[in-house]
């Protein structure tokens, strides 16, 4: 079923290098006009997914749809509306920054004015004449982003674009992504292994680990997900004794230290009842707190290796 609100849609996408599975039935859904943060630890399958989205790898199983069309059937027509930065910057070191852009501009048959426009967007106009071998890592990264922006694409795919950027560069990139989405209606898929890098700009997130998409939805959905992860921490004299005295009430509690119990937060009423029962059986209560994990904790929980 064609969903026109999705700019990128993969269905049960799988991929393997030799006998090793890299992606397992990934169904990515990137809404039109969103900034989609594609998150996962290194080696999770992010770059492989992005390569499949660009037709750089053949998909042995599943399908890729961009703009509602099958990538395999309309690869060149669809890629005319896509700008991409895949993995590390791919630049000709012997050429100037401007010539690097010009080579791609001529290859794609784009208007001459685009080169100056994207150089200004990434703040490299003054250094455009210098050979790329003299560029810092951050400047190379910005030039790579300029290359992705060159065709004024409706869809921008950026693989770890903050690599090599200093804190100011990261802030500027966030501003640029927000500007492109807000003012120009671009859809942006940006991958990262750090939630903190994308949570301030992303409207949607997908979390991948070991080639499996563990979570996908809006940032609000992720926040709801983390609300379900809230837990109560009880500081008492003897945590094990409390469990013995109240086996039914503390069935889902874990003794995390001699005097500490941790159990999932269900409701405020349950907290009140538990406090009453602990006091009733003569156990002292030193402290009780409800703790909600941060987005970062949720991300780490999702991406942590399962025991």
């Amino acid at each position: 079923m064609l969903d026109t609100s999705l700019l990128i849609e993969t269905e049960q996408l799988s991929f393997q290098f030799g006998p090793t599975p890299i992606l397992r039935a990934v169904s990515l859904q990137v809404p039109t006009g969103s900034i989609y943060g594609f998150l996962g630890p290194n080696g999770a399958g992010k770059s492989t997914t992005l390569r499949l989205l660009l037709g750089l790898l053949p998909a042995p199983a599943g399908s890729v749809r961009l703009f509602g069309h099958d990538l395999g059937r309309h690869r060149e027509a669809l890629l005319r509306h896509v700008g991409a930065l895949i993995e590390s910057p791919s630049l000709y070191e012997h050429l100037s920054g401007r010539d690097n852009l010009e080579a791609t501009r001529r290859l794609r048959g784009l208007p001459a004015a685009r080169t100056a426009t994207v150089l200004a967007l990434v703040g490299l106009t003054a250094d455009a004449h210098r050979p790329v071998r003299q560029y810092s890592l951050g400047m190379r990264q910005r030039l790579s982003i300029a290359l992705a922006l060159l065709p004024d694409p409706e869809l921008l795919i950026l693989d770890e674009p903050t690599n090599g950027l200093d804190p100011n560069g990261i802030i500027e990139l966030r501003e640029l992504l927000r500007y492109l989405q807000r003012e120009h209606g671009k859809t942006i898929l940006v991958s990262s292994h750090l939630l903190s890098e994308v949570e301030r700009v992303a409207s949607h997130v997908g979390v991948i680990r070991g080639g499996e998409l563990l979570f996908q939805g809006s940032l609000a959905d992720l926040q709801l997900h983390q609300a379900g992860q809230a837990h109560i921490v009880i500081e008492t004299q003897d945590a094990a004794a409390c469990r013995q005295l109240l086996p039914a009430e503390l069935a889902d509690a874990h003794v995390t230290s001699a005097g500490t119990l941790q159990l999932p937060f269900r409701s405020p009423e349950r907290v009140a009842a538990l406090v009453q029962q602990l006091v009733a059986v003569g156990q002292p209560l030193y402290q009780i707190a409800c703790r909600q994990p941060s987005l970062e904790d949720t991300f780490l929980h999702l991406t942590a290796a399962r025991a």
Partner: peptide, 18 residues
């Protein structure tokens, strides 16, 4: 080698050119 050294194959192959 200009392409091999620069690692630009993935960039080239992602362009809308056959």
């Amino acid at each position: 080698q200009v392409e091999h050294r620069a690692g630009t194959w993935k960039h080239l192959l992602a362009q809308p050119v056959p």
